[in-house]
């Protein structure tokens, strides 16, 4: 079987190699991988063929409406709803999670009740309700219950369809995110807040400087998941009704032109594209919050003019061991308690 040039004596020995008899073994043959790859490629080609050549998909229409003004505007509104509601929800969720963990019984029960209600009722119903708010309560006023009113306004002037959709999505999402944040806060070693307390830090500082940044490592992946899920939940805002988002825009065109399928493809394409971009963003956010947690890809931080830092081009021993991926990501690796 031996091919010329592959026999050990023929191989040139690199005199600078510190390993005298370096092993150049052939890998274990994995024919199954090649076979399965080929089978899958054939199946994929069949699927693509089935999509491209099927005239019912009307790719010309898809291509036309992909760049349609109303569709692109719908993408804009969908993005605005997604990010707007997620930002509001994250702020609310951190508050709710902190309240849930506090030893103040009032805060605890407020948080519990909020999560119970908003997680326990369907988002569709909630959106319908926010849309109907102006009907249920035509005038909103601020004042003492059963007493004087300080000011009042007409509900429909303030809570337009957009704001109802935005807050409807945000209030619902906050309940889910609160549980994610709570799990994240709970994942941080209690020794961390203890050390911060021993240094004289106050609770708020301990939360924002020490616990939350470490909890982010646990919070970010499911929050990315929730963001992607939110992107598509925005299609429910027609319940409000808010009628400018991507799904409504494409459905409207589809119904008008009697071509629903190509327009569904248009919507699917845009959702998929945005999701892909979100996944890239999530990767970088995860990497940022993973710093110092055995993820050595970023290496020790070098500060200009500051002392220390790694010598250029010479990774530390620990970096190399960690990069090999054969050890656990445990900061207490050298510890034998």
């Amino acid at each position: 079987m031996a091919l010329p040039g592959q026999n050990a004596p023929d191989r040139a020995v690199d005199p600078s190699d510190p390993v005298p008899d370096r092993i150049h073994a052939r890998p274990v043959p994995r024919p199954g991988r090649w076979i399965s790859a080929v089978v899958l490629l054939v199946l994929a080609a069949m699927a693509v063929h089935g999509l491209v050549t099927n005239e019912k998909f009307r790719w010309d229409v898809v291509w036309l409406y992909l760049r349609d003004v109303n569709v692109v505007r719908g993408v804009g509104w969908t993005l605005l709803l997604t990010f707007g509601s997620m930002v509001i929800a994250i702020v609310l969720a951190v508050g709710l999670a902190v309240m849930r963990r506090s030893d103040n019984p009032v805060m605890k029960s407020v948080s519990w009740t909020y999560i119970w209600f908003f997680r326990g009722t369907p988002i569709y119903t909630q959106l319908v309700f926010w849309g109907l708010l102006a009907v249920l309560y035509p005038r909103l006023s601020l004042g003492v219950p059963f007493g004087p009113e300080f000011f009042e306004f007409r509900t429909q002037d303030v809570i337009t369809a957009f704001w109802a959709a935005l807050f409807g999505l945000a209030l619902n999402e906050a309940a889910y995110l609160a549980e994610i944040v709570r799990a994240g806060l709970g994942s941080v070693d209690p020794g961390q807040s203890e050390a911060a307390r021993a240094l004289g830090m106050k609770d708020r500082k301990i939360l924002t400087r020490i616990v939350l940044p470490q909890a982010m490592r646990v919070i970010v992946p499911p929050t990315g998941n929730e963001t992607i899920s939110m992107l598509k939940t925005t299609s429910l805002v027609l319940a409000v009704p808010f009628t400018l988002d991507l799904t409504y825009a494409t459905n409207a065109i589809g119904n008008r032109t009697f071509l629903p399928i190509p327009l569904l493809m248009v919507a699917a394409f845009w959702y998929l594209l945005i999701t892909s971009i979100l996944m890239v963003g999530q990767y970088y956010i995860e990497r940022y919050y993973g710093r110092g947690f055995g993820d050595q890809s970023s290496g020790p931080r070098r500060r200009k003019g500051g002392p220390g830092g790694r010598r250029r081009g010479k990774p530390s021993r620990q970096d190399l061991i960690a990069a090999s991926g054969t050890t656990k990501d445990d900061p207490f690796l050298e510890v034998t308690p």
Binding site: D189, G191, Q192, E194, A195, A196, R197, A198, L199, G200, M201, K202, I210, P213, Q214, Y289, R291, G292, F293, P300, R301, R303, G306, P307, G308, P331, F332, V335, P337
Partner: peptide, 26 residues
């Protein structure tokens, strides 16, 4: 707040170090 101020005058070193893992030594 006052308790935190009292603690700030006392240094403590723990068995398991409890360094903040997301920050460099500095």
């Amino acid at each position: 707040k006052v308790v935190a101020r009292q603690r700030a005058r006392i240094g403590m070193v723990f068995q398991r170090f409890n360094l903040f893992p997301h920050m460099t030594a500095l």
